[in-house]
Amino acid sequence: MSLNRYRLKHLVNKKHAGATRASELLARPDRLIGVILIGNNLVNVLASSIATVIAIRLYGDIGVAIAGILLTLTLLVFAEVTPKTIAALHPERIAFPATLILKPLLIIFHPIVLLVNVVSNGLARLLGVNPTAHNTNEHLHPDELRTVVDEAGDLIPDQHQGMLLNVLDLGKATVEDIMVPRNEVVGLNLEDDVVTLLQQIRTSEYTRLPVYEGDINNVVGTLHLRNAARFIFGDDSTITHADIRRFCRKPYFVPESTALHTQLLHYQKEKRRMAFVVDEYGDVQGIITLEDLLEEIVGDFTTNNAGSVDEEITAIGDGWFIIDGSTSIRDVNRELEWDLPTDEAKTVNGLLVDTFQGVPETAMSLTLKNYRFEIIETSSKMIEKVKATRLELDNEE
């Protein structure tokens, strides 16, 4: 019963004979416990009877008490505490050889075991317990799996542990949480003249550029600079808007509520690397790339030309940080190991604007949970920069 079920399954897959026998016995734990306890109680009762008879012949009536005390100590030390402690510490070393005895005993005592199980299982059902529901307990909850990964120690390198934990967290976040918001999207507006568009293409820091007409909601498609190389060289006067349209790939839209692990599978299925995120009304809210999603698992591994988290969060000493208002709350929590709420707002600006019910004036401050924010720079539309720290609460609080 102390065997690690996951290691046991691994050994069964490796065709380990002892593990296979143990797995077969554990498939019906009620029968396994039944045959063990039948043998255990049978031996104890017989030992007690024999010890009592011998003690009475040797010491008379007082021998009953002597036999009871000596037999109890003997059984506790040699038949209960010592062997069960060893078995708990080294379950495989004890359990696998023990199956060679337990399997034949289960056959020999099968009628008795069956009778005992029928009675005990019936009683368990009367008490509201399903004795056959044990298998449901063998599946790990995601939080339990996180604990397993955390406690793996040297078996899993720290970097790999972080990646595994990030994979488990993918189901908790949506594309809305990590998308590039529409106001930060760099793209080609076909209402601009060709010269301006070609200048954007030639100086672009990105491999793929969204193409739209007038407003990003009027998306035409995505232009890969590899395709742009076919028409950007030569005389600019011969290039038209139609050339740009011709080499655009059809846009790929995803709902903002799509879970990250689901979107990863969609990228694989659709053979795409960029998607336009839309809300319930079909309006484009931003874009999400495959690189953005992969960085949620492995961390930053590409050059982020829009600015890194290190540039958005600056330590100024004494536990205080200067944070850009557009910084994602998820990035703040991950970088500073904070736990700011992410249920409603996605950025620091959104969180504070929701709290203030509008864009506050500079020099204003507030305490949210156990975090202190001071507004140091605003614009007419948003909070540009804040100074923030985590407060140390008293134990009573």
Rank of each mutant, 00 (worst) to 15 (best):
L170Q: 01
T222Q: 04
H141P: 13
E176P: 06
I107G: 02
Y212V: 03
R230S: 11
V119C: 03
T196I: 10
L198D: 12
G122A: 05
P104M: 05
I112H: 05
N117M: 08
R230Q: 12
E151Y: 13
P210Q: 04
V185Q: 04
G221E: 01
L209F: 05
N166S: 08
T136C: 08
E176Q: 10
P142H: 04
H224W: 10
A133Q: 13
A229S: 09
D177G: 11
P210H: 02
T207I: 14
P157C: 15
I216L: 12
V119S: 02
K172F: 11
V195A: 13
T222D: 09
V220S: 00
L188R: 06
T147I: 13
L168E: 05
P142G: 02
Y212C: 01
G153E: 03
H134N: 12
P181S: 10
V116I: 11
H139R: 12
P210W: 04
I232A: 06
L190E: 02
N227A: 15
E184K: 13
Q200K: 15
L168V: 02
I107V: 15
Y206C: 10
R125Q: 08
S204D: 00
R202T: 09
V219E: 04
L165G: 08
S204T: 10
I216Q: 04
M163F: 01
I232H: 06
V119H: 03
D215K: 12
I112N: 00
M179I: 05
P181N: 07
Q159P: 08
Q161K: 14
Q199G: 08
E144H: 06
T136Y: 15
T132F: 14
T132A: 12
L165N: 11
N189H: 08
V180E: 07
L126W: 11
L145A: 01
F233K: 13
D193A: 04
L223N: 02
N137F: 15
F231G: 02
V148L: 15
L164V: 00
L190W: 06
T196W: 08
P142R: 07
G122I: 00
L168Q: 03
P104F: 00
V186R: 08
P104D: 05
L123N: 11
L115Y: 09
I108W: 03
H224M: 01
V118W: 10
L223F: 00
E184L: 13
N189I: 02
L145S: 05
I232K: 03
G122P: 00
T132Q: 14
D177M: 14
N135R: 13
F109W: 06
L164G: 04
L140D: 10
L140F: 01
Q199N: 14
T196F: 08
R230I: 09
L170P: 02
V167W: 01
D193W: 12
P111K: 09
H134S: 13
T136W: 12
L209A: 07
H141E: 13
E213V: 10
V180I: 15
K103Y: 09
A133I: 11
Q199W: 07
T222K: 10
L190T: 01
G128V: 03
L155I: 15
V149K: 01
G171L: 09
D158F: 11
E176M: 15
L145V: 04
V220G: 00
S120R: 00
N121S: 14
F231Y: 05
I232G: 06
L223A: 03
S120P: 00
E138K: 13
A173Q: 12
